[in-house]
Design a protein around this nucleic acid. Sequence first.
DNA 1: GGCCAGGACACCA
DNA 2: TGGTGTCATGGC
Length: 224
Amino acid sequence: MTRPSLLDMYRRLLQAFGHRNWWPGRTPLEVAVGAILTQNTAWSNVEKAIANLRAAGALSVKGIREAPARRLERLIRPSGYFRQKAKKLKAFVDFLDRHHGGSMARMARAELQDLRKQLLGVWGIGPETADSILCYALHQPIFVVDAYTRRILSRHGYLPPDASYDAIQRYCMDRLPRDVGLYNDFHAQLVHLGKDFCNTRPRCASCPLKDFPLAASFESAASR
DNA sequence: GGCCAGGACACCA
DNA sequence: TGGTGTCATGGC
C-alpha cells in the first residue's frame, strides 16, 4: 500500500477537525511570549502565566523590559522553569530592542532566513520556539516541528523516530506547498490530534488517521 | 505519588 | 555530534 502524502494527511485532519485558528494570542508579542513559556510545559499552565502578565500590565515589550527579574519570575511561576523563562523573556526583549527597535512589526520586515538565524542566537530560543515565533507571530512560511509532529510522522512511518528537527522540517517543507496558512494549520492539527485525541484515546477507532499505515516498528510493538 | 506536558542549555566524552 | 542532567509547575 502506498503511503498517503502529507497533503493527504492534512486534508484528512482538516476534514475531521476544521480549521484550528492558531495560535492563541492577541498580539504578535503575546504569541512570542507564549512560545517561550510553553517550552516543555502544558499550555493550561502557560495560560495562567499569561493571564498574570496581562493583569499586571506586563504583557508588552515595555512591561517585560521594565519588570524586575523577581517580579517577572513571580508572574510566570505557573508555567514552570520560571527562573529560566524569566531570563528568556528578558533576552528576547533585549534582542528586539537591540536589533529591531523594540518592535515586533519591524522585526517582521527582516529577511526570513537572516531573522531565523538571529532568533536562534538568542539565549533560550531554540528551533521550535524560533519557528513558532516566525510562523505564528510573524506569519512567515516556516513549518514548526514539535514532539507531536515527530511522534505522529514517525508512528506512520514517514520518518524515523530519531530524525533531527531540521530533517523533519525539511521533509515537510519539501513536500508541502509553500503556504503560510497551510503550515500554520497543519501544525495546529497535529498538536490537536496528538494532545486532545491520541493522547487520551490511543489508537481509538475514531482517529481520523486510523486507515493510514503505521510504521513497521509500531505495528510489531502494537501486536505484542 | 509518579508521570507528563506544544524545549533549551550546559557539560562531557 | 550525540548523550545526559537540569530546570519546575500543575493536572491527572
